[in-house]
Write a protein that binds this DNA or RNA. Structure first.
Lengths: 216, 216
DNA sequence: TAGATTGTTAATCGATTAACAATC
DNA sequence: TAGATTGTTAATCGATTAACAATC
C-alpha cells in the first residue's frame, strides 16, 4: 500500500497541498464530479503533465479519457499527506505574533472541516503568561515541554520566539520528540536529520521582493 | 553598472538576502574583516561553489587567495538587492494577524539599522478602524488606497485579509501602482506580469510537514 | 466508434557541483 | 615562494515538459 520505495522529492510534496486545496474547494462547491489534469493544473498553477507525473508517484488515480474523480482523489491525497486524522501542534513564543497566529489557526481549524492541524498547546518562558488561555489554548512553561508534548500527543511545532532564542527552542522541541517545525524567527536554525524544518521568514521574502522593484 | 543583461534566476535572488543576513551579523560583531565563500556558504547553508557563482552574476567582489571583504560585499549586496534606501510598505487587513505583523515589523525596523523595509500605512475595509493608530501607523480606508500609496511613495504591500477578499485586494493594490506583494491569505492569487508575488501560506507549509511525519 | 485523457517514457531545460587555471 | 581562494568552465544532477501508446 505504501508507494514510497523511491523517495519522493520535496518539489513534488510541496505541490500536493496545492492540489488538495483545489479539490477541497471543488468538493465544497460540488461543481462537478470529475476533473482533468489540465484543469487541476490550471487551478493550482502547475502544468498538466506535471500534475499527472506528481500523482503517478503514489498510484493510478485517474481514468484514461475521463480524468480524476474529485472526491476520490481528494481522499487519496489526504491519505498520502498524512492528513486523515487530526495532528496536534504546539506553538512556542506567545508574543503578539504567536497569539495572532494561534487565533488565525484555531479559527481556520473551527471553520474548515478539511483542515486537520490543531494548535493544542502554547509555551512561553514568561511566568506571567503561564496559565493564560488564548482562544481556548493554555500557555505552559517551557520547562514542561517534554511532558505536555507526550501527554497531548503533539507532533509538530511553530516557533515564534525572538531570533536569539530560536535555535535553543528548536533543540528543546526536538528533545521533546517533535519531528516537524515551522520557524517564524528571522534566523537560520539547524535540526538533526529526520526532523523536518519549514521556514516562514518574512524579512527574507520582503528583501527578495525589493530586488524586483528596481529598474525595468 | 547594471550587470543584469542576462536575467538572473529567482533561485539566485532568493539566496542573496541569506548572504546579506550573514554579512550583517558579521559586520555587527566585527568578528573579522574577510570571509571565504566556504565560510559564507556554511553560515548561509549553501555550497561554496554556489556562493561564488551567485555573486559572479553581479560582478567580481572577491580577491583570489584572500576571500571577500565583509563590509564591502555587504554594501554591494545591499545595492544589488535595492536595499540602500528605505522602502515603504503598506499592509492591508488589520485583523489580529495584520496588527501583529505590523508590530513585528515596526519593531524590527526600529531595532535593526540594516533592515530598510518600513510599514508606513495600514488599510482596512471596516470604518470602525479608520483613523486607528497601530505602533505609530495609521489605518486608512481601502477607498483611499491609490491616493495614500502615491502620497507616501509606497512600493510594496502585505495582504492579511480573509482568503475570499485577497484576490480583490491584490487587484486594487496593483491598480494603485504596487509592484510587489507578500500574500498571507491562504489562497492562490494572480497578478499581472511585472508584479512580483511572494506567498506566506502557513496552511500549505504545515500540510507539507504532515507528510514527513508518517512512517520511517 | 471517435474523442478525450491518462500514465509513462524520452527530450529538454535549468540548477548545482566539481574542477582548475589565474592570481592574490 | 607556498598556500589559499577566487571566477569560470565543464560535468553532473534533478526537475519539468513534450510526446504518445494505451484505453476509457
Amino acid at each position: 500500500m505504501d508507494m514510497r520505495w523511491k523517495k519522493i522529492s520535496d518539489a513534488v510534496v510541496r505541490r500536493l497541498p496545492l492540489y488538495l486545496r483545489v479539490l477541497d474547494d471543488l468538493a465544497r462547491n460540488k461543481d462537478a464530479k470529475l476533473i482533468s489534469s489540465h484543469e487541476l493544473g490550471d487551478r493550482a498553477g502547475v502544468g498538466p503533465a506535471l500534475v499527472r507525473k506528481d500523482l503517478a508517484w503514489f498510484g493510478e488515480f485517474g481514468k484514461q479519457g475521463v480524468g480524476y474523480e474529485i472526491e476520490y482523489l481528494r481522499l487519496e491525497l489526504r491519505k498520502i499527506l498524512n492528513l486523515e486524522g487530526v495532528i496536534n501542534v504546539a506553538l512556542v513564543g506567545v508574543g503578539s505574533l504567536g497569539a495572532a497566529l494561534t487565533r488565525f489557526h484555531i479559527r481556520k481549524f473551527d471553520e474548515d472541516d478539511s483542515f486537520n492541524l490543531k494548535i493544542c498547546a502554547l509555551f512561553d518562558e514568561d511566568p506571567e503568561k503561564h496559565g493564560q488561555v488564548h482562544d481556548g489554548v493554555t500557555v505552559h512553561s517551557s520547562a514542561d515541554m517534554a511532558e505536555v508534548v507526550r501527554a497531548q500527543n503533539i507532533e509538530m511545532a511553530i516557533i515564534t520566539v525572538p531570533a536569539g532564542d530560536a535555535q535553543d527552542v528548536a533543540q528543546r522541541l526536538v528533545d521533546a520528540g517533535i519531528r516537524a517545525i515551522l520557524n517564524f524567527a528571522p534566523t537560520k536554525i539547524t535540526v538533526p536529520d529526520g526532523v523536518q524544518l519549514a521556514t516562514a521568514d518574512l524579512s527574507l521574502e520582503l528583501q527578495r521582493l525589493a530586488y524586483y522593484l528596481q529598474d525595468e
